[in-house]
Write a protein that binds this DNA or RNA. Structure first.
Lengths: 228, 228
DNA sequence: TGCAAATTTACATTGCACGCAAAGTTGCAG
DNA sequence: CTGCAACTTTGCGTGCAATGTAAATTTGCA
């Protein structure tokens, strides 16, 4: 129990064969799942299809991901916990809204990084996934995922502000708006093929919130087009 | 095809036996589903259980609800479409934020009404459901539901503002925040056993958003307690 | 009363998810 | 380099959600 599966070489951590294989299998499953879904649509891809394309047994799929959709956009429990910690403790002394903005920008960058990590053209992935993203099941799964993220933010905020979400709706409200900023920005960014600078989108949305929501848009100069 | 299943009597619409039975079955399924889930938790209640308790066949359950969770909190497609229309056209001339506030307050009242319609003590239902509400599956289902609502709001806002959500993230952001206000308020209200005035909660949250988010809470005087 | 339409039901099928134990790999100590 | 211990993969069986189909059953109405 609790073996390392890795060898420490002069401060560097070299993954063991076992570890590398596991990571390869995980990535293969994810890549194949995304490719199949982009091609046929979410509801026309079974776990069996994914397993077959990745050349593992269907049972092995579930050793890596708890559900079919987790292979598509899996933020595991560790990362969600880490998110809560960052919201709670990043930039202490700064206003909560500032900390949230920092965390959201950083996480958005992570999303963009993972997209590149997939191999191939990131813009191509975004374009291919666009059709599949209309599937209700997939939307539902994504919403559930974001709800978990939002919950983590709520808890982090509650800790940061020293308040209890049960007695004070403010952390929930702030978390909901932050998650909303994140979603709206990411989805707009994805729709642009990843060309619009994501960090700026998020920053401007937060600025709009901090200043009080305006009646109309807040980003026309980014797209170079008239938004109404 | 397209029979009325109802008899028009002097301007009043009297439901036919068929219609009344259908409504009774639907309500029975919902009530029984809620009761069983409150008692055992979502994942320990099968569709078969619900059907049996409601004295219909399992297949009939799916004639009324597309999924298990739809029986618990089902906003059907008609109501979601209607929501979009209200967001788009209610109080024309007023700012979008004002229209959103009106629609959200009104919908919150509908939620409260449906709770009473269930029979028994509303506060009792809230208390009983509280435990079951921690179930991840149920959370996921609720999130998916809210995502559909949020989407409808986005579309309604886009129409109202004459903008395209694909090119302008503003409707999405506004919809996300409005949905966030709704969720945070409802959940806080439910946590209070339905005692805190829901309309005021929502109004104050919108006011906070319109003014620019404050660093701390905005409702301390409602609970009568210190929120930090 | 009897026919047409709507509704319920039984039956079969597909797919997700998970527990379990057997078979196959990998890591490492001797 | 060999053999054991830990880990991973796999096959098999189970339960449950969800859907299609066609045969009863019930209701509305002439």
């Amino acid at each position: 129990m609790m073996t390392l599966d890795s060898t420490d070489v002069g401060g560097e951590v070299r993954a063991s064969l076992r570890e590398r294989k596991k990571l390869a299998t995980r990535r293969s499953l994810r890549r194949v799942a995304l490719a199949l879904v982009a091609e046929r649509g979410y509801s026309h891809v079974t776990v069996e299809d994914i397993a077959e394309a990745a050349e593992v047994s269907p049972r092995t799929f579930f050793n890596y991901f708890p559900t079919k959709e987790a292979a598509l956009f899996g933020a595991d429990q560790d990362r969600i916990t880490e998110l809560r910690e960052r919201v709670a403790h990043l930039a202490p002394g700064e206003p909560a809204l500032t900390a949230l903005r920092l965390v959201m920008v950083s996480d958005a960058q992570t999303v963009a990084d993972e997209l590149s990590e997939l191999g191939g053209d990131p813009a191509d992935w975004l374009r291919r996934m666009k059709g599949a993203a209309t599937d209700p099941q997939l939307r539902a799964a994504r919403a559930a995922q974001m709800a978990m993220v939002e919950r983590a933010i709520t808890e982090g905020l509650a800790e940061r502000l020293g308040t209890d979400p049960e007695r004070d709706p403010y952390p929930s409200l702030l978390a909901a708006t932050a998650a909303g900023v994140f979603r709206a920005s990411i989805s707009f960014w994805a729709g642009s093929g990843g060309t619009v600078p994501l960090g700026q989108l998020i920053d401007q949305a937060f600025q709009a919130l901090a200043d009080g929501l305006p009646e109309r848009s807040y980003v026309s100069h980014l797209t170079g087009k008239d938004n109404h």
